[in-house]
Nucleic acid binder design. Structure first.
Lengths: 200, 200
DNA sequence: CGTAACTCGAACACCCATGTTCGAGTTACG
DNA sequence: CGTAACTCGAACATGGGTGTTCGAGTTACG
């Protein structure tokens, strides 16, 4: 509804210090919304090192901020996958590559989605369906088509399993119950165990 | 701190209608806390069909209610597993049985844990570690010891994977993306895919 | 250098959830 | 039946989050 698009590059008609503060706010929002629920405007302002009034000057409402943070997260993830070409790899190998590059992002987006649930319109959220998420899903489809991944379970279920296992890995990592160096490998091995056709 | 224990069976010095209302409140709390975050006292009172004042008469604070609900959930789960003897079955078969009997409970407890996080002392929560959860974990250990489950991934990681996949199944079921009849089977197959030793 | 853009603390109005009190009505139970 | 236990709506105090306004100070930028 609001005419000012925070799309990818904001309009240049803003002074440099204002632009810098907006940046700080979005990063703070990304950090807080991406890790804990119940974030307040004061929290974000403090985390960003900015006055509450300034925060409201740039983002008129809680909902506006939440939307901008989500948009920013999506922009980031697009940038992160841009250089990645998986089309030459077999699906299982491609999964390992994608995971290594993106699993933290994927997890953060999942947490973010949950924590802004009450602030943004679910439809709006659905429209912006994260391209990085889609990447994983299309890889899944390809793997099934190639026969490298199992076809005896619903595709949507496999997709959901991926996301929840990624979330599990992030949780365990954060709780110190998983070795940071081993984490990606463990996660990849687990995902592939789920995806491989059953030995039946 | 409060001297009145809501342990398993409350003291009999309460009138019948009061006892009935406590029951209704706990069930309402279990329903709400077990499914959505941000539950208010008014919500619980309304769901229980009881006045807000009555609610406070039985549970002086939000924290008291939350603790009582958790305790009630644990009592329920103990009752549900009581008749189950898995010691005669091989670990993979035992998992299927346990899952069929308990996965909804296990998921609800996971959600509950998350939703009362800000209301109860984490230490208190840890002390009461749900026996039903422990049941799954000890089954896991047994399976590894018997060689039926893989030993190349950390036991704690396997445990975390189980819980997250159970949660995934409950989510998908609630969202209508998973056939209610097929759900348990799909879940069991997925869990066993993770647990089985890799074919390598 | 001067002005417009920007920042920010203080104070305000508002809403919502938590607890509490009062007082009158209802219900269990001896 | 009579009393103690219980219920419950209304109203209050409190605390926290959301937005807004004001006014003075700072900073970018032509």
């Amino acid at each position: 509804m609001s005419p000012d698009d925070e799309g990818s590059s904001a309009r240049p008609s803003r002074r440099a210090d204002a632009q810098r503060n907006i940046e700080r706010i979005l990063e703070a929002g990304l950090r807080l919304y991406g890790s804990a629920p119940g974030v307040s405007m004061s929290d974000v302002a403090k985390e960003a090192g900015v006055g509450r009034v300034t925060l409201y000057a740039h983002f008129p409402s809680r909902a506006d901020l939440a939307r901008a943070v989500v948009q920013r997260a999506i922009d980031d993830s697009v940038a992160a996958v841009e250089g990645l070409d998986l089309s030459g790899l077999p699906a299982d190998e491609a999964l390992r590559v994608l995971l290594r590059a993106q699993w933290h992002t994927l997890d953060r987006h999942r947490a973010l989605r949950g924590n802004v649930r009450s602030d943004v319109d679910p439809e709006w959220l659905r429209e912006r369906h994260d391209p990085a998420m889609g990447k994983l899903e299309s890889l899944l489809s390809r793997g099934i088509a190639e026969g490298l991944f199992r076809a005896d379970l619903p595709r949507e279920w496999l997709s959901a399993s991926m996301y929840h296992l990624i979330h599990a890995a992030a949780d365990e990592l954060a709780a110190g119950r998983l070795d940071p160096d081993a984490a990606v490998g463990v996660l990849a091995e687990t995902l592939l165990s789920v995806l491989r056709p059953s030995p039946r």
